[in-house]
Design a protein around this nucleic acid. Structure first.
Lengths: 204, 204
DNA sequence: ACCTGAACACCGTTCAAGT
DNA sequence: ACCTGAACACCGTTCAAGT
């Protein structure tokens, strides 16, 4: 029971701080990640955190960047370029859905592109290697990843969307269901992705 | 020079408050919209704003909802359903690019769907009227609007993206350009949109 | 019904100082 | 190099009170 004064040197490093920050975001959401709360959890003065990470903005960027590396750090699977690209976008979607609070964080600070960038490079080089013009390959990747970003962005706010009201008169019940029910988002994803892939890889 | 005590009744109403809030967001960005700043601009006690709008969250929702009505409040133009749907998505993209700070605000509070919802209803009913199954029409609309949301979301943070670094070795210069240069985003948008439209309206 | 004054419980960040 | 204490200039929100 000896605790006169806490350690004069905490021995913290930047990675530990980022790791604890990620834990907070994943368990309590991005709003719970305050510099003061974070430092309290680490048993440290707020200024210690500032010394290591600079400021809140760069801490958030570090969180997003680490998640981005996780997403891209896997080999794309498939026997054709088209299959590997399809694998890549599905992987990206799965990763984002699995860590919704990090993805929400990315969208709050406008860093969706950071989250997806490493994967974008892999996909573009795959399309280019299949014989497409470089510029076209880049453009195709942007449209594929727009689908990933757009769909998951909308979908991440699930709890906020329940009470959206009944179907407008202009629409059939089925149409309203397709529009609002998350169960059909995988289908919407595939509609968009394979439509684009068909345009990019005409030979199927 | 007579100013003993300001007006005992400000005569404010909710719409004026929302209008001033929009002015702040459009001229100084969403971070500048604080309850205290807003009330100061209106020459009023902060609690007056609270009395009218409830809290900050619902003020932000009101801003997004008003913008959504503007986007959807136009008749879709074109002689075929396919053309009218294409017009709708281009209109949505243009509207969002025109008011980037409002769109950023929507993404910060996770209300992109509110921004797009009224238009989504119009587009879905257009596809359904063309003979598609209701559920399929809803799903197709979700994929179309995912492209709108995804692309504009990434693109809205223009100033933050300049210093992203040079092309990775895996990519040609052209590919890197297609991936990062905003000048090609309209092309990426059309690639995705028309690919999906081709799948939805097979007869061209 | 509409508005104010004062206060609570927080923030991010900086500065000077300690070891 | 690494860390603390104290302070500055803010927040959103609530409560009691005034007309």
């Amino acid at each position: 029971m000896s605790s006169r004064k806490p350690h004069p040197r905490a021995g913290l490093d930047r990675d530990e701080i980022v790791a604890e920050a990620i834990r907070i975001v994943e368990s309590e959401g991005s709003a719970a990640l305050t510099m003061r709360q974070l430092s309290a959890r680490l048993g440290v003065n707020p200024n210690t955190v500032y010394w290591h990470v600079g400021n809140r903005e760069s801490l958030l960027s570090a969180i997003v960047a680490q998640k981005a590396d996780e997403i891209a750090g896997v080999q794309l699977k498939g026997s054709t370029p088209r299959a590997r690209v399809a694998d890549g976008v599905h992987r990206a979607r799965a990763a984002i859905v699995e860590s919704p609070s990090i993805a929400v964080l990315a969208s709050e600070i406008g860093a969706e592109h950071l989250l997806i960038r490493p994967l974008a490079v892999a996909i573009t080089s795959e399309i280019e290697a299949a014989g497409a013009d470089g510029l076209d390959a880049g453009i195709a990747t942007v449209s594929l990843l727009a689908v990933v970003a757009g769909l998951t962005t909308v979908e991440l706010r699930r709890p906020q969307r329940a009470a959206d009201g009944p179907a407008p008169e202009a629409l059939s019940d089925g149409a309203w269901q397709g529009l609002t029910d998350f169960d059909h988002h995988d289908a919407a994803f595939d509609v968009a992705i394979y439509a684009i892939l068909d345009a990019v890889f005409p030979s199927g």
